[in-house]
């Protein structure tokens, strides 16, 4: 900040007849921009005519502000749900929660069956994750695919929105049926990470289809036919599930570049 202006300089600046060279005017104005005290001095050094004119202008501007339309309210808070929630996911999330409630209900009616919630847990987030990064389901995909925010971060954000619904629903279902919480949630997270990791190679939608179909054919259907809980969901297998989740998450993180564009298999 420059030193304050002397009253003599201010008087010459405010006097329209006094000749001041351009350089001096510039240095005065640079100082005035930052210094309210000197601005007040300039205002005081002007003639009565100028002050009357300024007073009239300020009255007119005030009147214009008072009679004009009110300023739009701040809406920054309204934007946040739009950023996190993807509205076209809602039907799929509703369906997932409905299927889980049916599983809890069936479990209550037929307690001898292997835990349906545990069998459903790994595939519960997959429809949502597949829809979150799919050109068929997202109406604005072409607009979004060309923005800098498109990429793994965006897929993760949408996946987080899916998990924020699915994980509490699963936790509730598993406490209702009395099945281990860790063995419900860890496979769910492992399959989510696996879908994203495999999705970086073959597309998220195909990865979700293959993983979900594979689980249903290899684990869920045999378990229902034999009415026995599969080995990989027996107590004590939570450590392998946790390690698998971490491994798949690392693969997904390393492959983050491949989500920059929506490729044709999405």
């Amino acid at each position: 900040m420059t030193t304050h202006l002397s009253p003599a300089v201010i008087a010459r600046y405010a006097d329209r007849d006094a000749a001041l060279d351009e350089v001096t005017v510039w240095s005065i104005e640079v100082h005035l921009e930052d210094c309210p005290d000197c601005r007040a001095l300039v205002a005081g050094a002007t003639t009565d005519d100028t002050r009357a004119l300024l007073a009239r202008i300020s009255a007119v501007v005030d009147a214009g502000i008072a009679t004009g339309p009110a300023p739009a309210p701040r809406r920054s808070r309204a934007a946040i749900p739009n950023r996190w929630m993807v509205w076209h996911l809602l039907p799929w999330l509703t369906m997932t929660v409905a299927v889980l409630s049916c599983a809890v209900l069936l479990q209550a009616l037929e307690p001898t069956m292997p835990s349906l919630v545990a069998l459903l847990a790994p595939v519960a987030p997959l429809p949502g994750v597949a829809i979150a990064w799919s050109r068929r389901a997202d109406p604005a995909w072409e607009l979004i695919a060309g923005t800098p925010a498109a990429g793994l971060a965006m897929l993760l954000r949408r996946t987080a929105a899916v998990l924020a619904v699915v994980v509490p629903a699963l936790a509730l279902a598993s406490t209702r049926t009395g099945f281990s919480l860790a063995l419900t949630l860890l496979p769910c997270l492992a399959f989510t990470a696996g879908t994203i990791a495999a999705g970086s190679f073959v597309g998220v939608r195909l990865a979700a289809l293959v993983l979900g179909g594979g689980w249903a054919l290899a684990v869920a259907v045999p378990a229902l036919l034999t009415a026995e809980l599969p080995v990989i969901l027996q107590p004590g297998s939570s450590l392998p599930w946790a390690l698998l989740t971490l491994l798949l998450a690392a693969v997904a993180a390393l492959q983050s570049d491949s989500f920059r564009r929506l490729s044709s298999h999405n």
Binding site: H88, P139, E142, L143, G146, P148, A150, R261
Partner: peptide, 18 residues
Amino acid sequence: LRRVRRGLGYLPQQFGFY
């Protein structure tokens, strides 16, 4: 592509919206 994309504006032929 991040840096390039910040300097792009694109209107697709058929654009979907929410």
